[in-house]
């Protein structure tokens, strides 16, 4: 068990290292002088030289990478060229809206998607199933920003029930925080619900075809308990896996949703940084999001040991 944990944790190191190399090379491999790209179109030679000096661009690539990585391990992501601020601070100041949005979306999603998917599987082929799956295809096909604007148009402009855009910090009142997060997380949850409901249905369907479900029925167990006790408990591993994998969708969605609803989070920061060609910020944000994704999936891997007794060595 302990060795399994250790092995899983160690296995993420090469992946994260490769991610870091990739992100590092991204800037270095661009056609042209990275310093000139960073400095922007209106920089003079002195400014470019200064940037080159700062990034150690004259050093060999290998040295540059370890220099960069070493700084990151000390929490130093460099200075943002656009905001003229430490990237670390910048990120810290932008985390709250992103975290709030993500958590609220996940809670909404799991509460809606898992029961819907299970119901659809249980009623396979019925109208209930078809309607749920129909909505799932629809939800999966509508881009987040289209849903976002449609929701704003309906609930804020036409009905006037909810504020249009913007964010309120949780310390300034939970009510306002919640109200302003409601539409963004709803918009973001749609695609997420569509995906997870569908995968839940597939997993539960697969389990319902297993022999032990027949055994449970042969015992005279009620259908509800067959579903809850035998099917869902066995479908838990694939469902949780899918939730973990769909964090990639969630993170992409966060970037777009924050732009639509002007939530001053990491997603909006990413877009601003890209538009401003603020590379230290871009690198830091991507690295951070990737790390979060890898860690979440690591945690999910570890949860298997609780969910499935067969994975325990």
């Amino acid at each position: 068990m302990a060795s399994y944990l250790l092995r899983r944790i160690l296995a993420t190191i090469p992946v994260m290292l490769l991610v870091a190399i990739f992100i590092f090379l991204l800037l270095r491999l661009t056609p042209g002088d990275p310093a000139a790209i960073i400095a922007g179109d209106y920089a003079n030679d002195a400014q470019i030289a200064e940037i080159r000096e700062k990034l150690g661009l004259d050093e060999p690539l290998f040295t540059q990478f370890f220099y960069w990585l070493g700084n990151i391990f000390q929490g130093d992501f460099g200075e943002s060229f656009f905001y003229k601020k430490q990237v670390g601070e910048l990120i810290a100041s932008r985390i709250e809206p992103t975290l709030s949005l993500s958590l609220m979306t996940i809670v909404l999603t799991v509460m809606i998607a898992v029961p819907l998917g299970t119901l659809a599987a249980y009623r396979q082929g019925s109208w209930t199933d078809r309607i749920i799956m129909g909505f799932s295809v629809l939800g999966f096909s509508l881009p987040v920003f289209v849903i976002g604007y449609a929701l704003i148009w309906l609930f804020s402009l036409e009905l006037g029930w909810l504020p249009v855009q913007g964010y309120q910090r949780i310390s300034d009142g939970v009510g306002g925080w919640f109200i302003r997060l409601l539409l963004p997380s709803l918009a973001l949850a749609v695609v997420f619900v569509a995906f997870i409901a569908r995968m839940t249905r597939t997993s539960v369907l697969e389990v319902l075809g297993e022999d032990y479900i027949r055994t449970a029925r042969a015992k005279g167990q009620t259908e509800r308990k067959v579903l809850m006790r035998h099917a869902l408990r066995n479908a838990a591993v694939p469902i949780v896996t899918v939730i973990g994998l769909s964090f990639a969708i969630l993170i992409g969605g966060v970037v777009v949703t924050e732009s639509v609803f002007t939530l001053p989070g990491l997603g909006l920061l990413t877009v601003e940084a890209v538009l401003a060609r603020d590379y230290p910020t871009i690198q830091a944000v991507i690295l951070l999001f990737s790390l979060v994704y890898v860690v979440i999936n690591l945690l999910i891997d570890l949860s298997y040991t609780v969910l499935d007794p067969r994975i325990r060595y």
Binding site: Y212, A218, K219, N234, D308, P309, R310
Partner: peptide, 25 residues
Amino acid sequence: RLRDLRGTKMAMIFQEPMTALNPVA
């Protein structure tokens, strides 16, 4: 009624003992 009968008056065992038991219980 069928559910009541299963187990009490009639019971069944299957071909594949490897898959007939719930793996997580």
